[in-house]
């Protein structure tokens, strides 16, 4: 599955459009992370717990989107966008969407070169 946030993929031709695919996840942070974040807010720096939360939810949303694309028989997703929204205080949604397409390589890569000179048999 090729996933890009551009409208096309260089070296590939879009032959079929399979429609919009999307994935979302709503994640709540837990108290431990809140306490750690509260302490970190005194001295500054990266909030690792929240970064992880973001990474996890983004991965899961993307996985769901890719699953949908697979079900539609697509082999690529183009023009992917992210969006988040606060559902309540303490939970946020991560939403990712894109267009599922079928792509074919324009030319087979140069790896396919059967160069096997015939060795004369002694």
């Amino acid at each position: 599955m090729i996933v890009v946030n551009t409208e096309y993929i260089p070296g590939y031709r879009i032959v079929e459009l399979r429609g919009l695919v999307q994935g979302n996840t709503v994640r709540a942070k837990h108290l431990g992370r809140d306490i750690a974040a509260g302490l970190k807010n005194l001295v500054g720096g990266e909030l690792r717990g929240y970064t992880e939360l973001l990474t996890e939810s983004r991965r899961e949303a993307m996985q769901r989107m890719i699953q949908q694309a697979e079900q539609l028989g697509a082999n690529a997703i183009v023009n992917v966008r992210f969006s988040t929204s606060a559902v309540t205080q303490g939970a946020a949604e991560m939403y990712v969407y894109g267009t599922a397409v079928v792509v074919h390589p324009e030319q087979p890569p140069q790896t396919a070169q059967p160069v096997e000179p015939e060795t004369p048999q002694a």
């Binding site: 090729i2 996933v3 890009v4 946030n5 551009t6 409208e7 993929i9 260089p10 070296g11 590939y12 974040a37 970190k40 807010n41 005194l42 001295v43 500054g44 720096g45 990266e46 909030l47 929240y50 970064t51 973001l54 990474t55 983004r58 992917v80 992210f82 030319q107 890569p109 140069q110 790896t111």
Partner: peptide
């Protein structure tokens, strides 16, 4: 830019990559 400047053919297809970070303020 949305149009792959100076792209050359490659065996590796393009791939979307994501990076995220949360930075706290201090007191």
């Amino acid at each position: 830019l949305p149009n792959f400047p100076y792209a050359v053919p490659s065996s590796m297809p393009p791939q979307m990559l994501v990076g995220e970070v949360v930075v706290a303020s201090d007191y």
